[in-house]
């Protein structure tokens, strides 16, 4: 049986972007596979890159359209949207962040996997907070961790 709250590997495979898309610029990775009544990601997207035929159809990303602007990441009520940018040996993973304080650019934080296990110490390469309080933090991790890291923990707190 799969671990509760952790995306099963077989489902995850179908949600991840092809490398060629993530190598150009960050692209959205939407880890939302249930038929829940929500379509925020679809209507906030400024370029129509989120495909969601009905409010309860799980979203899919059109990788050719997604520009990596981060709007959906900071709007998703389920905090289920991430962005990934592949950079040679490295990858930048962008995660939503709603804890205090917001880690600052240059700070070193713990990069966590989907079960909260620390994968690496990682440098924050981008950090912004939207007006409604949701932050977006990007960390630079080894390329093989691009689709493993999905959270960060600032020093000190658990």
């Amino acid at each position: 049986m799969s671990e509760p709250g952790v995306m099963p590997e077989d489902v995850l495979g179908g949600l991840l972007p092809p490398d060629r898309a993530a190598e150009r610029h960050p692209v959205a990775v939407i880890e939302c596979h249930e038929e829940i009544p929500c379509d925020t990601c679809r209507w906030v997207c400024p370029v129509g890159a989120v495909i969601k035929p009905s409010i309860t159809t799980p979203p899919r990303v059109d990788w050719d359209r997604c520009t990596g602007c981060g709007t959906c990441l900071m709007s998703c009520p389920g905090l289920a949207i991430f962005m990934v940018r592949l950079r040679g040996e490295w990858a930048d993973v962008y995660v939503p962040y709603e804890f205090s304080p917001l880690p600052r650019r240059g700070e070193v934080v713990a990069a966590l996997d989907r079960m909260g296990e620390k994968i690496a110490e990682a440098e924050v390469v981008l950090s912004v907070r939207s007006r409604d309080g949701t932050g977006m933090v990007a960390v630079r991790v080894p390329r093989e961790a691009a689709h493993v890291v999905r959270a960060v923990r600032a020093g000190g707190s658990r």
């Binding site: 049986m1 671990e3 509760p4 709250g5 952790v6 995306m7 880890e31 939302c32 596979h33 249930e34 829940i36 389920g78 905090l79 289920a80 966590l112 996997d113 989907r114 079960m115 909260g116 296990e117 999905r150 959270a151 923990r153 658990r158």
Partner: peptide, 23 residues
Amino acid sequence: EIMPRIGGYFVHAAKIRRMGVPI
């Protein structure tokens, strides 16, 4: 949770799971 599965949305579970909270 007494049931064999979570009753809420996966995305709500994932938010706490990735911060290390066991379910």
